[in-house]
Amino acid sequence: MLLIKCPWCGDRDEHEFSYGGEAHIVRPRDPEKLTDDQWADYLFMRKNPKGAHLERWVHAHGCRRWFNVERDTVTHAITAVYKMNEKPPRSSKT
């Protein structure tokens, strides 16, 4: 049961949040110009690293705000929490 620090509300139990998958996947500006493969890459392909993972969470049962988290997929340690418009921490390889 993770303890997640919402950037607006502080430390809260995982129960209050919903997971939103990999972070920093930008929707293509002009999807019609993409090949099928490029579109499929945006649509389906996700990283599955062993270690640091940048991912999105939403404080669904709290302030309902989205934010980013850097979480280690092995230890579940959360090493950074940052807002949607902020850059990932420099430690991250992503």
């Binding site: 919903s18 939103g20 930008v26 929707r27 999105r56 939403v58 669904a60 309902r64 705000r65 989205w66 949607m84 418009n85």
Partner: peptide, 13 residues
């Protein structure tokens, strides 16, 4: 509602 919020907050702020 969650879907609308997700797009507004994460893709089109």
């Amino acid at each position: 509602l969650a879907w609308l919020e997700e797009w507004l907050q994460t893709e089109w702020p």
